[in-house]
């Protein structure tokens, strides 16, 4: 059987809210080492990967590897019934056709359980190599959210260029152009408010703003986001989920015809 317990439902609620518009459905692959997910958006230009490690859970048991096909809109409906501070337990028998979600209030005076019907989803598993990136930028996630939101009012695509001057986001559209540059900045006392630019070589790539905006739905998960860039490769936008794991969004760059 599979059983995983998290002390705060809020984490799972935020994760599913971050994913559900981009990917309508996907397989939660559970194994003794945790829960993982790979799913593409409907246009197949971006990929979402999620890794939640077994030791990040309060309790984790998985006797047998399983793929649980989840409709994220439906999972979201159920998670809306959980209080943020509720303890949440996910349970499934081996080869089950449903996932049970149990919510317990902090003082354990309210216990509810919901069964989510599982789906059979055919999905191709992609091998994502570990690699060195030309530029890795860590910045406040709220800053990233603001930049991509602000630029969306001006254009459809953004040129992201990392140089020793900083990371610059540029767009243009019918009403004009916009450039926003963030510099390496370790002045703020709080590490969460700092911007770190780790540059091996300058790099510039163009992306669809619509997707970068969508990734920002993960902002409530964590105060920092990491962007990894290499020429001609997908950008990786990564949000860590405390000690539990991380969600990563990969977006293919736009290239000249």
């Amino acid at each position: 059987m599979f059983e995983a317990r998290l002390p705060q439902a809020a984490v799972l609620k935020k994760l599913v809210e971050a994913l559900k518009e981009l990917v309508t459905e996907g397989n939660f692959d559970v194994s003794p080492s945790g829960i993982s997910l790979q799913a593409m958006d409907s246009s197949h230009v971006c990929l979402v990967t999620l890794q939640l490690n077994d030791d990040g859970f309060e309790h984790f048991r998985c006797d047998r590897n399983m793929s649980m096909g989840i409709h994220f809109g439906n999972l979201s409906k159920i998670l809306k019934c959980a209080g943020n501070e509720d303890t949440i337990t996910l349970k499934a028998e081996d080869n089950a056709d449903q996932l049970t979600l149990m919510f317990e209030s902090a003082n354990q005076d309210r216990i509810s359980d919901f069964d989510l019907k599982l789906m059979s989803i055919e999905s191709e598993h992609l091998g994502i190599p570990d690699q060195d990136y030309s530029a890795e930028v860590k910045m406040p996630s709220a800053e990233y959210q603001r930049i991509v939101r602000d630029l969306t009012s001006m254009g459809d695509t953004v040129l992201v260029s990392a140089t020793k001057e900083g990371i610059k986001f540029s767009t243009s559209g019918d009403i004009g152009t916009a450039n926003i540059t963030l510099r390496h900045n370790t002045t703020p006392e709080k590490e969460d408010e700092q911007t770190h630019i780790d540059l091996k070589e300058p790099v510039a790539l163009t992306f669809a703003l619509r997707y970068l905006n969508n990734f920002a739905k993960a902002t409530p998960l964590t105060p920092q986001v990491k962007l990894s860039l290499t020429k001609d490769l997908p950008v990786v936008v990564e949000y860590k989920v405390g000690e539990l794991g991380q969600v990563r969004f990969f977006l293919a760059p736009k290239i000249d015809d």
């Binding site: 197949h44 230009v45 191709e124 598993h125 293919a252 000249d256």
Partner: peptide, 13 residues
């Protein structure tokens, strides 16, 4: 500008 499928960048396992 054009955009490749994300699958084109990663190998199928």
């Amino acid at each position: 500008m054009k955009q490749k499928s994300i699958g084109a960048f990663f190998s199928g396992a």
